[in-house]
Amino acid sequence: MASWPDSSQSDTSKPSAERQRRLAAVRPRLLAFARLQLRDASEADDVVQEALITAVEKNARFEGKSGYETWVFGILKNKILDALRAQKRHGKWQPWSDDGVEAAIEQQFQSSGRWTDVARPSSWGDPENTLFSERFWQVFDSCMIALPDNIAKIFTMRELMGLSTHQICEEAGIKENNCWVILHRGRLLLRACLEKGWLSEANK
């Protein structure tokens, strides 16, 4: 072993105690992210595990251009994409069924196209404060879980993973127009759910 020319690098290839501590600290947050995206707890566990292993193995490649946690998140996102592709290859993506989504959206609008009284948006208060509120994130989490699988998958690829609709079409094998329709539905459903949860919590 000692005769390998690059053996001197082995010192830097192992994460420092500080980095190991930070990996352990970020793990629950990686899990929360992966669960929202993959919607399967054991699959989420697996990708997070793989991402952590990769972070350890490629430790020397971290160049400090971004924060360490951000770098680890980047690794996780790639693992999630791989997992989504595998899900798709194995036919685990639900066929595009409606699941009462159309009916739920019909309830938000009158036949004239105006909002119905129950669905008309109310104010959520200052957006800055909203995003800093722990309660908002709890509501966000439960509303994400309540989204139908198909919609959630596309929605999280766009809003959590930050993929363009063009990239999503390629991954999901759908037309871009279809992608916009799904995202529109997702946003309407999520908005309604957030408003219900957020305002009812706020009025407690």
Binding site: R22, E69, L131, T156, R158
Partner: peptide, 25 residues
């Protein structure tokens, strides 16, 4: 107008979720 703000907030929430999650401890 409220709906538009809220769609925007939801859009920003995805990014904020990751920023929040990847902030150093």
């Amino acid at each position: 107008r409220k709906c538009n703000q809220q769609f925007q907030l939801i859009h920003d929430a995805g990014k904020a979720f990751e920023e929040k999650a990847s902030s150093p401890p």
